[in-house]
Design a protein around this nucleic acid. Structure first.
Lengths: 211, 211, 211, 211
DNA sequence: CATGAATGAGAATTCATTCAT
DNA sequence: AATGAATGAATTCTCATTCAT
């Protein structure tokens, strides 16, 4: 734990935690694959282990409980999602641009990895065994439309957008985007670009000033 | 078993199927309650039985498998939902009216029974143990936006609506409605009427002819 | 649960609970046997099941948890023990008689069933996984010498016994009796009657008035 | 491994066995603590490791098996116990003195270290996974009263004590002492000195010549 | 029609132990 | 000397389902 020779301590610890991180990542990826392919009900430690080519107890070794693993998967997907959007939204000048990029970047990333969204849904609508899960899910749901609601309000405050119920419109936009992603997981042949275009046209119509 | 006298055979069978129907309905209702309260993971036969005040084996007696029970619950909720909409949409004269009623009637019914939607979500995103479940879920997802797409196309064909991508707009509208119902299950304090109003304004803006 | 025909209700319930009781008794007996033969560590549900010739899950069916089973075994042995003593101690006239019977009756019963004492020890010195187990064990330990202490004090109060530290002498007597039972479990060849005689002589010497 | 230079080989080995001994002692102490605090069932390598601040595999490194560790703990406690008594009993002149010191010294030492007795009990009544464990335990139990029996017989042979069943009286005395130690582990508030006094009075009464 | 009894399959998790480093 | 990583065996327990009554 606290070794005596402080020579290459950091290097060792980095390497160690590297292996650990690699394993955890491997397990998380395997879990996503199983979740997307087999559904939450069939996502047992032994199936994840089979998918990853490791033993089931190794999963317990790296994740204290199934809950912790599920949480890690959720965190991983959500972070990936947010990072991709954040990277592109940084350069947006207007509220319109920010809103456009938020939707387009998210659809572009998640739309090409339907298994991520699939896994996310499985987690959100199942892992409700513990007491705080309901509120956790609430937070999650919340997290989806709040950023959109803020952009909408910002656009209204700056006079860039027209007059509308920002809160409920945010729910509509957020649900539309996630709804399509949900469809895409089931119907891979749906046209991502076309939907994105339709959604953008729709949104621009709705936030227009002189409507 | 003791069918020596074939006098009132039919009557008996009718009575049996009546009891049978009543039991099945009771079990379905209990399942919905447990699904909504405890989540799919905690919805075992024994919990449903406890909720209904019957034995777990009686559920097996009336439903060949858990899959069949799940299917029955899904069918029950979906039928209820469709019947309520169908009853009101019958009297609609224009496509606009039909679309409005489809949304308003559904929100009015499902919005006041969040446990139905909750249970629906639990089923849709979990019960995937058999191979054909993926396609089954596809049908389900499909069922949501197709009626809307048809109305949109009808409105366009009759010249009542403007020019837009009917298919993708149907996905948007359907997702917006269901998305809000999903939120409502988590945040009961959300304002159903206000959202309905916002959604209607939005939809009317989108289908308008001279936009 | 609450059946409609109240004709032979009681009879049915009696029969049912009879089967249930029989099974529980069978499992308890099997558990005692395994405990005594293999020790607590090797007393798993599957071993008990093998001993009883039933499936391991049937044990779970009748006992909600291993803790409950352990508790049942403890209760069973303790009750047996107390009943045997109580039956004989009832007719005792003097404190001396009461004390003598308490010791002789207990040694006579438990001494011929060393596996009961063995099982008792295994439970008392192992089943300490839960929080309240420490206090539970305390109660148990307490239960052993308190009846003896009471008899000693009663004998002193009535002038039947001499002057001594009743509390600590009770511990000594109780420990001596249980200590021998513990030895007997390991060395079945020890002479029960001879020890009983020695213990009685000893005790009578100690409580004598004019010593 | 790098034993090319055989110059200070012996010194190294000595140092090694010193470290080895220290580690083994550390692990034994940690095991005693966990045994006393958590009970045998909760005494796993990982818990012992946590208590000692080392890794679980280091325990396997120093003790070939759990059995060996258990054995080491038992030996350690027993040796401590015997050494303390032996040191004081050496100067006893009469059999009475020897007996008195054997009891007083043991109670004085073990009575102030209830965790040792607690750990001893946990080991004696649990660690029975191997075939020969039963006989091992027999030896252990034996070890308790045999020294007492010998003193009693010696005192009788020399005419110092009266006439009694030395063997069974030894069991009584041994059980009384250990029984109180067991109580003490559960009720720390019990009065060690008072019990010791009572026990001594009792024993002296029992071995008296003209009774 | 209804149930209690029973089961086998499978779940998550802990354990002692091994091994490369 | 010491450890983290890894595993297979074993554990308790839950589940859907069957069957005799």
């Amino acid at each position: 734990m606290h070794s005596k020779n402080n020579s290459n301590n950091q290097e060792e610890e980095t390497k160690k935690s590297f292996i650990e991180q690699a394993r955890r990542a491997q397990i998380v990826e395997a879990t996503i694959a199983v979740l997307a392919e087999q559904g939450y009900l069939n996502t047992s430690f032994s199936r994840i282990a089979a998918q990853a080519g490791i033993s089931a107890s190794l999963i317990s070794y790296h994740f204290k409980s199934k809950e912790e693993l599920t949480e890690a998967v959720y965190t991983f997907i959500t972070q990936q999602r947010q990072e991709h959007v954040a990277a592109q939204v940084a350069g947006a000048a207007t509220a319109t641009d920010r809103l456009r990029i938020m939707l387009e970047a998210d659809l572009a990333y998640m739309g090409t990895r339907p298994e991520l969204f699939q896994a996310l849904l499985e987690i959100l609508f199942v892992g409700r065994s513990k007491t705080d899960a309901q509120s956790h899910r609430a937070d999650v749901v919340h997290a989806g439309f709040m950023p959109i609601a803020e952009v909408l309000k910002a656009g209204q405050a700056s006079g860039e957008f027209g007059d509308f119920d920002a809160f409920n419109l945010a729910i509509i936009i957020d649900s539309a985007r996630d709804g399509f992603l949900g469809q895409l997981a089931v119907y891979p042949e749906f046209d991502l670009e076309q939907f994105t275009a339709t959604l953008m046209t729709t949104v621009l119509t709705l936030i227009k000033k002189d409507k």
